[in-house]
Amino acid sequence: MVMDRSVRQQTSSLSFVKNIVTIVGGFGSGKSEVSVNLSRYLATTCDQPVSIADLDIVNPYFRSREAAERLQEFGVRCIMPEGANRHSELPIILPEIRGAIEASATGFGKLILDVGGDDLGARVLSSLADAFREGSYDLLLVLNANRPFTADVAGCIRMITEIEGASKLRFTGIVSNTHLMDETTGTIVLGGLELAREVGRSAGLPVVFLSAERSVLDEIEVDALDLPVLPLDRILLKPWERPGS
């Protein structure tokens, strides 16, 4: 597929793909879906082992831990609470996560950190901030322009300031992930990208990639964007939804 090739060329050459990719953003921006798809993408394209850690201590449902089985099929190591704790809303931070951050920061292996929404969710990072080494990680803001509190530049800047304050880490880039669930269109995706770029200019951050559902990307001239694109296959589905439907 043309789409896949463009992604492969561009994403694999991206400098942002440091060993640790920390995915944060507003509540409901699509962080988990981006994290899960990015993990799968890296597992199938890069020659290092890939791990994903679910650090979501805010959301009780639709977390990346629900995709663990499918990710393991792709060889992704999933660091997530086990057994009954999987369904707990307690802020569980597995001790392995610190170890994984230190290992990836100093050596080998890609690590995706899927963090809970807003500054509340990002606060968990502050307890781990000393394990991150400067330059070893990316901190990416997933931006959905259709969410109530990130619909304009001012709202996004507030989100960036609040998350940086809570996490004690600095952003390195923005992921444009604007969507309206099943009602997403190419126009909506492009409108969101425009906002992401404005926010980027205002905050001094690059837009590092655009992500959108594969079927919606068909409506867009992806090559004209001059930006890497991560096509999403929805993995965190509602119980009545079928993959690819």
Partner: peptide, 10 residues
């Protein structure tokens, strides 16, 4: 049900 509270739709 909990799904109504937690899921996202337009």
């Amino acid at each position: 049900d909990g799904m109504i509270g937690q899921m996202m739709e337009a």
